[in-house]
Computed example of a mutant assay.
Amino acid sequence: MTHKTPQFITIEGIDGAGKSTHLARLAERLGAGGRELVQTREPGGTELAERLRELVLGGAAQDGLTEALMVFAGRRDHVRRLIRPALARGAAVLCDRFTDSAFAYQGGGSGVPWTVLQQLEAWACESLQPDLTIWFDLEPEEAARRRAAARAADRFEAEDLGFFVRARAAFERRAGEHAARFVRIDAGQSLGAVAEQLDALLRERGL
């Protein structure tokens, strides 16, 4: 199957899946040949969204819907001020998390109804979807062991196992609904094996 070279790429996975380990490798490949690369993250990416990130990750726990509203407010600003302008001028955009994480964490983890998140997504993103979503998938039990070894600090990383079991199931559901852009990477393999799987994907997509 031939694929169009992706311009907007997102990285997803539950905390502890190791996606951050491979971000530098991805950024290097995407920026090869002098191509402009905008590397960003969510929550965050703009001044407003970074302030909301501090509240979501480091502030007092909120109910799931309040948290979702904060996340999507930041996402709308991020899309309008950074992501769309970058794509419009021909840059590639690499984003550490995007809307799929809201469905996993606020939806699966905290129980916000899927239909509510779909409406928030429509309002905030105005039909913008990634061209490619690389999902680093890992069993929640192994992810918990990795988080413990790394002495995880933010509020989500400290959630209990049940939260991440539900979050992973939500990623699976989201991947089924958006199969054309989702690619699953088995993050339970060794670092070398994950890197090889990632390299093969990038070659296939012309990156």
Rank of each mutant, 00 (worst) to 15 (best):
E42R: 04
R41H: 12
A152V: 07
T5D: 09
R51P: 08
A61C: 05
Q7I: 03
E196N: 11
G192E: 15
T10L: 05
L207G: 04
L55N: 01
A175L: 08
E157L: 04
G109E: 03
K19P: 07
G33E: 11
L161P: 05
S127I: 01
R151F: 00
L65S: 09
A88Q: 12
Q62W: 14
A102G: 15
G176M: 06
A193S: 13
T115F: 01
G44K: 08
Q129E: 15
E126R: 14
L94K: 02
E142V: 15
R151A: 14
Q106C: 05
A68E: 12
Q39G: 05
G74Y: 03
E121I: 02
R174W: 12
L87I: 12
E126S: 11
L201G: 08
L82G: 06
E141I: 03
E42D: 10
S110P: 01
T40H: 10
A144H: 02
A167R: 02
F103I: 11
F163L: 08
K4I: 11
L55Q: 15
G33Y: 02
E28C: 05
R205S: 03
E12W: 01
F171P: 07
P43Q: 06
L202I: 06
V93W: 00
V165I: 13
R51Y: 00
G34C: 10
D131N: 10
Q7R: 15
R145Y: 00
F164Q: 02
A88N: 09
F182P: 05
A144R: 05
E28Y: 00
T21P: 07
I14V: 15
L69R: 08
L198I: 02
T5H: 13
G108C: 07
A187M: 10
E177P: 06
Q39K: 14
P130A: 12
E50W: 00
R174L: 14
L57A: 14
L94V: 11
A158Y: 02
G13I: 05
E47H: 13
S20C: 04
E204C: 06
I9E: 08
F156K: 11
Q62I: 01
E126M: 09
R166M: 05
